[in-house]
Each structure stands twice: as C-alpha cells, then as structure tokens.
Design a protein around this nucleic acid. Structure first.
Lengths: 107, 107
DNA sequence: TTCCTATATCGTCGATAGACGATTAATGTC
DNA sequence: GACATTAATCGTCTATCGACGATATAGGAA
C-alpha cells in the first residue's frame, strides 16, 4: 500500500474496460498523421473521391486505401459507392461520440 | 480530376503537417486501453504511485512502466520523484492542448 | 467485346508495439 | 554493511503497422 505524500487514499476508479477499449480504438484510428489529414480534408469538403485523397497525401494509392479502410473500420468514415468512384465522408456522429468519450473519460 | 456528385470542387485544405503530427502523436499515446485507464486513474486521485497502478492494471510491473513511459514521452504525464517511489500525475495543460487540437482540426 | 478508370486486396518487407521475466539503480531500514 | 522496496531498463519473443508494387474487381466508354 502506498502512502501520504502524493496519493493518500486509493480512489477506486470504476472499471470500464469497454469504454477504455472504445476510446483507445478511436484514438488508434487517428494515431497516424496521414489519417488525421484525411479526416481534415473530408471535413473541409464534405466528402471526397479517393483519387483526390491520393493526390493530397502524396502516398501510393494502396497505402491511402489502407488508411481509409482503418478509418472506415473505426466507424469514422463512411463510403458511398458511385461506381467506379467512391465518395468518402466523415461520420459526424462518430466524431461527436469520440469527443464525448474523451471529455467524459479525461475530464 | 474528380467531378460533380460528391465533391464538386477540391477545397484546398491547409497543409499542417506539424499539427497533424502532434495530434496523431497524442492520439497514439492514448491508443491502448491500458493507457486510457492509467490516465483515468491518475485523474481520479490527482497523482498515483506506480505500485498502485500495477495493481490496478493487473499487468507486469515492467509493462506498466513502459505504458507510463509512453505517456510521459507524449507529455501527458509528469513524474515526481519521491525515492524510492515516484508520483505520477496527468499534465492537465497537455490534456487541454489535446482537446483543443481535436476541436480545432476535427470541428 | 475491348479498353480505361477507380478502388480494393494481396504479398512482402522492415520497423515498431506490446508483453514478459530478469536485472539494475536508488533509497530507506534493520 | 546487508536487506527490502520501488521503478527503470534490458533482452527476447510474437504480433501488428505502414509502406509499396502488383494484381483483382467492377463499371463506364469506345
């Protein structure tokens, strides 16, 4: 048991493994600068075709596609098929949820 | 060049590689549930000794130490030496900066 | 049908993450 | 001095990430 100076009592912090996991997963999705930029671009123009994202990032098409996949998997990005193109856009609800979780967990 | 339906014009999104990187780095620090929980615990009791964190997480001491190191490296956690113990606490300023960055970049 | 375009997926590679046990370093205590 | 306690570091292992080129897939256009 630890003592006085810095933490006199051990506050029982609620175990919230699901929330910890959800927040961590969302953070992970944004843990790469390319993915942050993707979100910024999509927000700025309310949806964007993949080709333009490839140009904007200056990475290989397969690499950008993979970043988009990760964002979709986290629920942060939606894809609307307009064959042969695809329109990607930010899922605003998920973004809000993310910020809510953050505010909730981290004050 | 892409056309009409989903993104009529290509909005020139400001290149902000430093901000993208900073936000991504902070997100990465929180991209593991154990680290989210560490922050939650530290916030709940305004500082905490390592031993208690080890008990709370149920992971090996070396593993917890590594998670703490990552949080310190991101600037999210400060350590105050109280030999032989160490008191860890959340750097509130950095936390605020994180939320500010998020709000700024992601609306 | 035969191309062309746009996106997704596959396979590969090197780098990094995450876990652990063992060890080290720094103190306080006996 | 010998010992116990606490945290940091080291070494090792497996798993995952991030990049790329090559290929597959699905439509539209000629």
């Amino acid at each position: 048991m630890s003592d006085q100076v810095c933490c006199p009592t051990i506050v029982p912090v609620l175990d919230q493994p699901l929330l910890d996991q959800e927040l961590a997963t969302l953070c992970k999705a944004l843990s790469h600068p390319a993915r942050v930029k993707l979100i910024r671009i999509m927000l700025a123009q309310s949806g964007c075709v993949g080709q333009d994202l490839v140009s904007a990032l200056g990475l290989a098409q397969s690499t950008v596609s993979e970043h988009i996949r990760i964002l979709k998997e986290a629920g942060l990005v939606d894809a609307e098929n307009q064959r042969p193109k695809v329109c990607y856009s930010v899922n605003e609800a998920k973004l809000k949820r993310y910020q809510h979780l953050l505010a909730d967990a981290l004050g």
